[in-house]
Amino acid sequence: KELVLVLYDYQEKSPREVTVKKGDILTLLNSTNKDAWKVEVDDRQGFIPAAYLKKL
Rank of each mutant, 00 (worst) to 15 (best):
K1L: 12
K1D: 07
K1Y: 12
K1T: 12
K1R: 14
K1N: 10
E2P: 11
E2S: 12
E2A: 11
E2Q: 14
L3R: 11
L3P: 02
L3D: 02
V4K: 01
V4D: 00
V4E: 01
V4L: 03
L5C: 13
L5P: 00
L5I: 14
L5T: 04
L5A: 04
L5N: 00
V6Y: 00
V6W: 01
V6I: 04
L7N: 02
L7T: 03
L7G: 00
Y8D: 11
Y8R: 14
Y8F: 13
D9N: 08
D9V: 03
D9T: 04
D9S: 07
D9E: 04
Y10W: 06
Y10A: 01
Y10R: 02
Y10E: 01
Q11I: 15
Q11A: 13
Q11H: 13
Q11F: 15
E12N: 07
E12L: 13
E12C: 14
E12T: 11
E12M: 15
E12Y: 06
E12V: 09
K13P: 06
K13C: 09
S14Y: 10
S14E: 09
S14F: 10
S14T: 12
S14P: 07
S14K: 07
P15C: 09
P15M: 09
P15S: 12
R16T: 14
R16A: 14
R16N: 15
R16M: 14
R16P: 06
R16F: 14
R16E: 15
E17I: 04
E17G: 15
E17S: 07
E17K: 05
E17Q: 08
V18Q: 02
V18R: 02
V18H: 03
V18M: 13
V18A: 04
V18K: 02
T19P: 03
V20W: 10
V20S: 03
V20T: 03
K21E: 04
K21M: 08
K21V: 06
K22W: 04
K22F: 05
K22I: 04
K22G: 05
K22V: 06
K22D: 01
G23M: 03
G23L: 03
G23I: 02
G23H: 04
G23E: 01
G23P: 00
G23A: 01
G23Y: 03
G23V: 02
D24Y: 07
D24N: 08
D24H: 06
D24L: 08
D24T: 09
D24I: 05
I25D: 00
I25K: 04
I25H: 02
I25V: 11
I25W: 03
I25M: 05
I25E: 01
L26W: 04
L26E: 00
T27Y: 11
T27M: 10
T27V: 15
T27I: 15
T27D: 04
T27W: 12
L28P: 00
L29I: 14
N30P: 04
N30F: 05
N30Y: 06
N30L: 09
S31L: 04
S31E: 11
S31I: 05
S31Q: 08
S31V: 05
T32D: 15
T32S: 14
T32A: 13
T32H: 12
T32L: 10
N33K: 07
N33T: 08
N33R: 12
N33P: 06
N33F: 11
N33D: 13
N33S: 11
N33G: 10
N33Y: 10
K34E: 12
K34V: 12
K34L: 11
K34W: 09
D35V: 10
D35Q: 10
D35S: 10
D35C: 14
D35T: 11
D35W: 15
A36N: 12
A36V: 15
A36S: 14
A36F: 15
A36H: 14
W37V: 03
W37E: 01
W37H: 02
W37K: 00
W37F: 04
W37S: 01
W37I: 02
K38C: 15
K38N: 06
K38H: 13
K38G: 04
K38T: 09
K38W: 15
V39N: 00
V39S: 00
V39W: 02
V39F: 02
V39H: 01
V39K: 01
V39Y: 01
V39C: 04
E40S: 10
E40D: 05
E40F: 06
E40L: 14
E40Y: 06
V41E: 02
V41N: 08
V41R: 08
V41I: 13
V41D: 05
V41G: 06
D42Q: 12
D42A: 13
D42I: 08
D42M: 12
D42T: 07
D42N: 14
D42Y: 08
D43V: 07
D43E: 11
D43A: 10
D43G: 15
D43F: 10
R44W: 15
R44H: 07
R44D: 03
Q45K: 09
Q45F: 09
Q45T: 13
Q45S: 11
Q45W: 10
Q45L: 07
G46W: 12
G46Y: 15
G46A: 12
G46I: 15
F47S: 05
F47H: 06
F47M: 08
I48T: 02
I48M: 11
I48N: 01
P49C: 07
P49F: 06
P49N: 06
P49S: 04
A50Y: 03
A50V: 11
A50M: 06
A50L: 04
A51K: 15
A51G: 13
A51P: 08
A51L: 11
A51H: 14
Y52I: 15
Y52N: 12
Y52W: 07
Y52H: 12
L53M: 04
L53Q: 00
L53A: 05
L53P: 04
L53N: 00
L53K: 01
K54P: 05
K54E: 14
K54T: 11
K55A: 07
K55Q: 08
K55F: 08
K55E: 07
L56M: 10
L56P: 00
L56Y: 07
L56E: 03
L56D: 02
L56C: 14
L56R: 00
L56V: 10
